[in-house]
Amino acid sequence: MNHTLFRSAVLIALAAAMPCAQATTLVYQPVNPNFGGDAANGVNLLNEANAQNKYTAPSQSSSSSTSESSLDQFNQELQQAILSRVASSVTNSIVGTDGTLKPGTISTGNFTIVVSAISGGNLQITTTDNTTGASSTFIISNGQ
């Protein structure tokens, strides 16, 4: 009986020594200053993000436009001007006097352009690179 009494006394003593549990309201406090957190956290968060960032920007190649010679730049501009004139010439041959596109086929040295009428008054334009066989197609309204 003494043994049981001793156990009970120890349990009562332990229960009395334990503080009472109290519940409080949990309040969310954001850390990131972009979402209302303390502004002093911004530098620390940026440093942590930079330390974890494994991305490296691709290096500039030596063939970038900033290192091209004046002659190379001139040749590129000349090539673009000539291609623009060829495109204008092709456009003039497929556009009618009323401004609408005319179905037909136009061939240049390297390209074939096919304008064909499809349903709903739309036109399908297919451009094919004759050297590679690659082609591109788009559909437009003929405006009728």
Rank of each mutant, 00 (worst) to 15 (best):
N2S: 09
Y28G: 05
L26W: 09
N50I: 03
G121D: 02
A87C: 01
G121A: 09
S61P: 09
L71F: 08
V10F: 09
S8K: 06
S89N: 15
Q60D: 11
F138Y: 12
D72P: 01
Y55C: 02
V90I: 15
A40D: 13
T108E: 07
F111H: 10
T132R: 02
S62V: 11
K54F: 04
A23P: 01
T56A: 14
L11F: 07
T132W: 05
N53W: 01
D38R: 13
S119L: 07
Q52Y: 02
T108A: 11
R7H: 07
S93G: 01
Q60T: 14
I125W: 01
A81E: 06
L78H: 03
V10K: 12
N47K: 13
P30A: 05
C20P: 06
G42V: 00
N110F: 06
I113Q: 02
L5W: 01
T91Y: 06
A13T: 15
D98F: 05
L45S: 07
F74A: 15
N122A: 14
N110H: 04
Q124N: 12
S65A: 12
N32E: 06
N75R: 10
V10T: 12
S65F: 11
T56Y: 04
S61E: 10
Q80F: 04
S70N: 11
L78K: 15
P103K: 01
G143K: 05
Q52C: 00
Q79E: 14
H3D: 14
T66K: 10
A17C: 04
T4Q: 12
G121Q: 09
G99R: 05
R85A: 12
K102I: 15
A15Q: 08
F74L: 13
M1G: 15
V115N: 03
V43A: 15
P33E: 01
A15T: 14
T112L: 07
Y28D: 13
S136N: 13
H3L: 12
C20V: 13
L78R: 12
N142T: 06
T56L: 12
T137N: 02
T137P: 00
S64C: 10
T131N: 15
L83H: 07
A57M: 10
T91E: 07
A13P: 01
V43N: 12
E48W: 05
N41G: 01
L26N: 09
Q144A: 13
G109Y: 08
Q52I: 03
T4D: 12
M18L: 15
N75T: 08
A51P: 03
V95K: 13
V31E: 06
S84W: 02
A15C: 08
A134V: 11
F35V: 09
A81M: 03
E68G: 03
S62Y: 04
V114C: 02
A134T: 13
S141G: 15
T66A: 14
T97S: 15
I140P: 00
V114Y: 01
L14S: 08
D38Y: 05
E48M: 10
N34K: 08
V27M: 07
Q79L: 13
L45C: 06
V27Q: 14
N142G: 08
S69E: 06
A21N: 07
P103E: 05
T108W: 05
P30C: 05
S135E: 10
E68W: 13
P30E: 08
F111M: 12
S84D: 14
G104M: 04
V95G: 02
A13L: 14
G96A: 15
V43L: 14
G143Y: 04
V10I: 15
E68I: 03
N34M: 05
S63V: 06
T25K: 11
A117H: 02
